[in-house]
Every structure is written in C-alpha cells, then in structure tokens.
C-alpha cells in the first residue's frame, strides 16, 4: 500500500516536470532559453517516471518471484532511459550550435563572447 503511494508521488512528479517543460516552451522569449526548458525538464521527468516503473516492478518481483514478465519490462524500460540520457543533451547541443551558426542571436543577452570571437 505504501509502495503504491510512493509510485503515485513519482508519477505526479514526472508529469509535473513534463508539463513545466511544455509551458516553458511558450513562456520563454527566444530559442536558447526554450532549449533549456525543453531539454532539462523532459530528461528529469523521464527519470522520475522510470523510477516509478522500477519501484512498481520491484514490488511485484518480491511478491511473485524472479521469472515474472514484469522484470523484462523494467529492464527494457531502463535501457530506454539510458538511450534518452545519452541522446537528449547531444541533440540539444547540435540544435544550439546550428541555430547560432544560422544567425539566430539570443534575445536580451547582456554578454556574447562567441559573437565577439566571430567579429575579431
């Protein structure tokens, strides 16, 4: 019973961070700050949701024993989490570099070292 409550808390946290990522896409003014919201919050939300999956699987595993199909499900979910963790920041880095090279400048920036470097 307590395990169900902990799972609910983790699912609610994951959904909250994903919602904040999507709202941040609309509230921030330019593309770099939107990238902050869209990368960090979805990654952390994914981690929380997969932790909820693992907690639920471990509780079923303790009750029913090792060869239940739930353990295969949780193993594959963990591999999906690793794929997200490796690819998400790398993709964000590629988008940021491509955006800067295609000429989108940060809005309201107080300092831009890279621009000075290009002009010099």
């Amino acid at each position: 019973m307590a395990i169900d409550i902990i799972t609910y808390v983790f699912i609610a946290g994951g959904c909250f961070f994903n919602l904040m990522a999507v709202i941040g896409l609309h509230r921030f003014p330019d593309f770099y700050t939107r990238l902050h919201a869209g990368t960090k919050c979805t990654t952390f939300g994914s981690i929380l949701l997969i932790i909820a999956v693992l907690i639920q699987s471990i509780s079923i595993w303790v009750v029913e024993g090792g060869s239940s199909p739930q353990s295969i499900l949780s193993l594959h979910a963990f591999i999906a989490l690793i794929a997200i963790l490796v690819t998400n920041p790398t993709g964000a880095h590629a988008i940021a570099r491509a955006g800067h090279r295609s000429g989108v400048k940060p809005v309201k920036a107080i300092v831009d070292d890279l621009e000075k470097e290009d002009n010099a």
Partner: peptide, 24 residues
C-alpha cells in the same frame, strides 16, 4: 546537480525573470 537544475528552471518558468548570455 540535475535535480537542482530542474527546480531552478521551474522557478524561472513560473516567475519569468531571465538574464541570458553566452560565455567562453
């Protein structure tokens, strides 16, 4: 650090005060 970063970004999403720039 990831947990701290997310709480900070959520605060920025709610309040909307930003101060951006690119540093080397």
């Amino acid at each position: 650090a990831l947990a701290k970063a997310n709480i900070e970004v959520v605060c920025l999403v709610i309040t909307g005060k930003i101060n951006p720039g690119i540093l080397k």
